[in-house]
Structures are given as C-alpha cells and as structure tokens.
Design a protein around this nucleic acid. Structure first.
Length: 283
DNA sequence: ATGGGGGCCTGCCGGC
DNA sequence: TGCCGGCAGGCCCCCA
C-alpha cells in the first residue's frame, strides 16, 4: 500500500485523533517488526502527549512532549486502524483483536490506534526529536518530491552519468524520497520514458519534464486519498486512493489509455520488481 | 562507487 | 476442495 501519498493520507487521518492528545497506554505485543523495537518502547510512550504528526518520505513522525519522536513505517502491508471514541464524539467499535495487531496506542480520549502489519516489513523506533535528521533511516533520504529542494536542476544533476535504468533511479530514496513502484510506473508513462532507459542517457529536457510530472502524480493521489477522508476509518489507508486513476500500474494486457494507441500495457521485471508500461508511448 | 540480486514475512489469487 | 507457485505497494545488505 504505502507510498508517499498513502502515508500522507494515513498521517492526515491520524492527526485529529493523536495530535495534542496523551497516550495513556501502549500495548506492544511482540518484540520487533522488521527490526527490534527500541528499549522500553511502551514505557517511553505511556503518558506522553503527541505534540505533532509529520511525514518525511514514507515515514510518519510523531513528536512527543518527552523530547522523543516516534518513527512509524508501514512497510508493505502496515495499516493504522482507528477505533474507540473519536474527538468529534463518534464511536467505532473495537474490531475483534485481529491477527497481526502488533502495537495498540490507547489515547486519553478513548481512541485507539492499532498498528497491524501481516508481513512485518514495517518498523517503529524512537529518537531524540532534535536529532531526527541523524536517524539512520532518515539520514540518507533525498529531498521531498513536493518540496522546493526538488527541482529540475537537482534531478538533472543527480541523474547525470548514471548507468542505472530510470525506473531504478526514481525508486532510489537517496535521489528522491517517497516514490514507490506504482507512482514511478505512472510517472514514466506520463513522461513517455521507457522504464529501462538509462538515467544518464535521457535528455536534460526530458529529465526536467519529470519534475512537474512527479509532483502532479503525487498531488493528485494525495487529493484522491485526502478527499476520501470522510470519516476516520479511512485513516487505515484501505479506502479512497488513486488506484482508479492508474494508467499503467497493474494493467498488464489492457489497452493503453492514449487515444489512438493500439498497444497493450506490458509488464517486465526490473531488479525483481514489476514495471508496467506502454511499448508504443514510452521510449 | 555503482548496479543487481537476495532476503525478510504472510496472504492472496489463479491454475491444476 | 486443496495444494502449489507466483506475486505483492519497501528497504537493507551483500557481492561483483
């Protein structure tokens, strides 16, 4: 599920339930997800107020009034399920304790946030808020694609001379942070660039053209997710979404959406991951 | 340094 | 119906 737009949507859904609220209890049901949880995770969350929720790349960051920041990563299958009493007075019955409910945060308001992650590729960690840029998962991330630091000059510079396929380059979080397989496929379709094309071999003009396309695709996806946030349940990241708008992703064998293009969407495997593209429109 | 592949886990889906 | 292989939106690590 989670690339940048999904994480942004989840963060937006969590904000009204968590921001400014105290965590009265944390149930930590196993010692680890992808990596061991930090020492004393439950105790370090208990009684702390969540000052602010933020997003960096695909990470959700919760600044606590203890001076620590909780880092949450959803991995491939992680979901944040909200239940219990909502600030607005709504109430969602607690779903039956489900398999893979690894961490439950109980808020003073009566709301509960459950981190559920079947594949356990997700992560949680704690770090001093004032040293978050040094955290090993954050440290090497490239610029936010929707931020000012990500522009034509930057991307051209970073891709110059690179022998790697453009698909791999855009998935490289050190170059730009937050894109995943789906949105890279969509971006390359809009840009008319073949996913196997070597990054350093693409003209500066076409590279520059990628920047606004990346922004557009992400912004549209966020808008689609955000607009679906009619209630808090959708903070679990399951509903809404851009998926109806995919032009190539998961459309192998389907007709290319380009008017008058007769080709079908093709799937290839690059670095063990599926790339979907139109062999006619993308060169 | 750079690029490619393996591995981590579980669940689901399609084919037989 | 059951079994099996293939596949999944991420990320780190190792090797050439």
């Amino acid at each position: 599920m989670p690339e940048l737009p999904e994480v942004e949507t989840v963060k937006a859904g969590l904000a009204p339930v968590m921001e400014g609220q105290v965590i009265t209890r944390a149930d930590v049901n196993r010692p680890d997800l992808r990596w061991p949880f930090p020492e004393g995770l439950a105790a370090r969350l208990t009684g702390k107020c969540v000052n602010r929720l933020r997003r960096r790349s695909k990470y959700i960051l919760a600044d606590l009034d203890s001076g620590e920041t909780l880092l949450i990563h959803l991995g491939m299958s992680g979901r944040m399920l909200i239940s219990g009493q909502m600030p607005g007075g709504f109430h969602f019955d607690h779903p039956a304790p489900a398999k893979h409910d690894h961490v439950v945060l109980h808020m003073a308001t009566g709301a509960r946030i459950t981190f559920n992650d079947a594949r356990r590729f997700g992560a949680m960690d704690l770090m001093p808020t004032d040293q978050q840029d040094d955290h090993w998962l954050i440290r090497d991330l490239g610029p936010e694609p929707l931020g000012n630091a990500f522009d034509e000059t930057y991307l051209t510079q970073r891709l110059k001379g690179r022998n790697t396929p453009i698909k791999s380059a855009l998935l490289d979080q050190r170059i730009v942070a937050g894109l995943g397989n789906i949105y890279v496929c969509e971006v390359l379709f809009r840009a008319g660039i073949h996913p196997r094309r070597k990054a350093g071999q693409i003209s500066a003009k076409r590279i520059a053209g990628l920047v606004p396309l990346i922004r557009d695709v992400l912004a549209e996806a966020i808008a689609a997710g955000g607009s679906s946030l009619r209630d808090y349940r959708q903070a679990d990241g399951e509903l809404g979404y851009f998926q109806h708008g995919f032009q190539v992703y998961d459309r192998e064998g389907a007709a290319c959406v380009t008017p008058h293009c007769e080709k079908k969407i093709t799937r290839i495997v690059q670095s063990g991951r599926s790339s979907f593209f139109c062999p006619q429109c993308q060169r």
